[in-house]
């Protein structure tokens, strides 16, 4: 079987290393989709596991140049210049206030947009890999995996009812066990 592990953040890295190895030992072809190799550092991923790194941390929102210039540089530059004269104290206070309100707001907006871009990239990469790989078994290994597949996996399951989905790779119980 083609077993695809979806573990965008690698939050359960130790289990991921164990379970991907277990799947490979069971003779499956194993693909792991996760954020980056660095997230799994120290957990000794089996060499048989094929990996696809999402790399969403490389993506970040770039503020428009006009915003950067007119809302960050110019006001603070002006206040710095005013601050060289007799209004030093007031200018410093105004700059502090400006940073705490306008700049902090811009930073928060940048952060939110960056998170959204990263999330979109993560969701898109996971979707791409599921389509490209046509897995027989998808392991949704962590909360972010459920989040990443929520937009397309239910429809895919409806198309391919034989597609197996689980939240871990463990030995299935069978009648001979009981």
């Amino acid at each position: 079987m083609n077993v695809l592990f979806v573990a965008p953040s690698g939050a359960r890295a130790k289990a991921l290393a164990t379970e991907t190895r277990r799947a490979a030992d069971a003779g499956h072809r194993v693909l792991l989709v996760a954020e980056s190799e660095a997230k799994l550092a120290g957990h000794d991923l089996d060499g048989r596991v094929e990996t696809h790194w999402i790399g969403s941390s490389a993506v970040s929102y770039t503020e428009p140049a006009a915003t950067r210039f007119f809302r960050r540089k110019v006001p603070l530059g002006l206040l710095r210049r005013v601050g060289r004269g007799p209004l030093r104290r007031r200018a410093r206070k105004a700059a502090k206030h400006y940073r705490a309100t306008v700049i902090a707001g811009l930073d928060a907006d940048k952060k939110t947009r960056t998170q959204r871009l990263r999330r979109d990239r993560r969701d898109a990469v996971v979707r791409e890999q599921v389509q490209r790989w046509a897995p027989d078994w998808v392991v949704l290994h962590e909360p972010l995996a459920v989040e990443a597949v929520a937009g397309f996996l239910p429809a895919l399951i409806a198309e391919r009812p034989a597609l197996r989905t689980t939240y871990a790779f463990e030995e299935l119980w069978d009648e001979t066990d009981g």
Binding site: V149, A150, A168, L172, W173, D177
Partner: peptide
């Protein structure tokens, strides 16, 4: 996410092996 999880859960928790022949569902 909640809708998707609700749809996937019943098919995604097969019994797995644990101690003494018991069936474990996570």
């Amino acid at each position: 996410i909640w809708d998707a999880h609700a749809g996937m859960l019943p098919r995604s928790v097969p019994p797995v092996r644990t101690v003494a022949g018991a069936r474990l569902r996570r």
